[in-house]
Design a protein around this nucleic acid. Structure first.
Lengths: 206, 206
DNA sequence: GTCTATAGCTGGATAGAC
DNA sequence: GTCTATCCAGCTATAGAC
């Protein structure tokens, strides 16, 4: 066995563990949020010690940043995987549906922009900001196209649509419905999409 | 001066300070959230020491509970003050508009149900839970009536409407629009209400 | 690179003087 | 009831042995 393959093997194992760490981080973030997540939580969940964790990520900030980058990449990949036959509005709807299903499965598609402090922390992470800008650009284009197509309300400023769209992917109503109503996943998703695009009023499409 | 009026005066001063404490708590909760708000923050903001603060409220949990009860009472008072000529849907819309304007003014109409831990803490506060149940009952009645009137989508489960309605009062899109777009308060409110009731699609009322 | 042990700090809560 | 001073738990991060 050459030294190279051994190095590759080690490197591969290192990568695998890093993935496990990020998986654990994502799970814990989904359940407790950033402030209440501790480095001990993460280390214990995968059965390593805290100093070992710090060999992979130099700080809590760094760790969460890496987890968030992976989440954004997942969302971008999801968006890119949608068939070109979809209209812009259908793509937006499909991506939101994916995010809602991830959340209903106990996962986390994005970090809910809960606190100013967390947002500012992430904004200091240039790698993360780059990904966000890229995804945001793609989504903004879809919004504007969908407005031109007459599929989204052209009377609304694109920013209003875009920010409201983001907010829906983190909408706490999803968890309330899952926890307090007897609705199944499919029904919740269907209802949330309907509320997002058609609103609470009785309406008909033009 | 009788001993009674002196006692009353003291009592009144005590009440006034308690109000000041709750004002400070609400302001800090609005800006930093529960986890990052410290008892030192509150004490410093009104210029008293931490032990004095603990003479009024026996714990952070207790303090935030009291602040939340006052917020709920404010919302209930707001709802009750609406003219009877308003339809149920108009009342719901007016209350949401009030909440959005409070938030845009840097205030806090309710505590955004950000974290599980905070929600569970509040649910242990029986006084708070009582107020929530009362307000929730009023709002649920309005929703059902509005559905019967044909003003809200009768095809949606009332829970879906109710939870989505709550979520709109805490919608992070509001802060994003205030921070990153050049829209003024009235325009943001108008757009958010439109998105809430008519959705993102191009629609016409029935 | 992994661990045990611990430094250093922060924040909730309190003791005890006045 | 108000303060100063402090306790103690829990957290991030690291030193140092193996």
């Amino acid at each position: 066995m050459s030294i190279f393959s051994k190095l590759n093997f080690k490197d591969q194992a290192f990568r695998l563990r890093e993935d496990a760490i990020l998986d654990a981080t994502t799970t814990i973030l989904a359940s407790k949020g950033f402030d209440l997540m501790t480095m001990d939580d993460v280390a214990n969940q995968i059965g390593i010690s805290k100093p070992s964790l710090y060999k992979h990520f130099k700080s809590k900030e760094d760790l969460v940043g890496a987890a968030m980058i992976r989440l954004i990449d997942g969302a971008t990949a999801q968006l890119d995987s949608l068939p070109d036959t979809f209209t812009p509005k259908e793509k937006l709807s499909a991506l939101l549906e994916w995010a809602l299903r991830v959340r209903l499965g106990g996962g986390l598609p994005f970090l809910p922009s809960t606190s100013n402090a967390v947002r500012e922390m992430l904004m200091r992470n240039l790698k993360y900001v780059g990904r966000v800008i890229k995804l945001n650009g793609q989504l903004e284009k879809l919004v504007v196209k969908a407005q031109k197509d007459g599929d989204l309300d052209a009377g609304l400023h694109p920013d209003v649509i875009l920010y409201s769209y983001y907010a829906r992917s983190c909408d706490p109503a999803v968890e309330y419905l899952q926890k307090f109503s007897k609705m199944d996943t499919d029904t919740i998703v269907e209802n949330m999409l309907r509320v997002c695009f058609q609103g609470l009023e009785k309406t008909t499409k033009t």
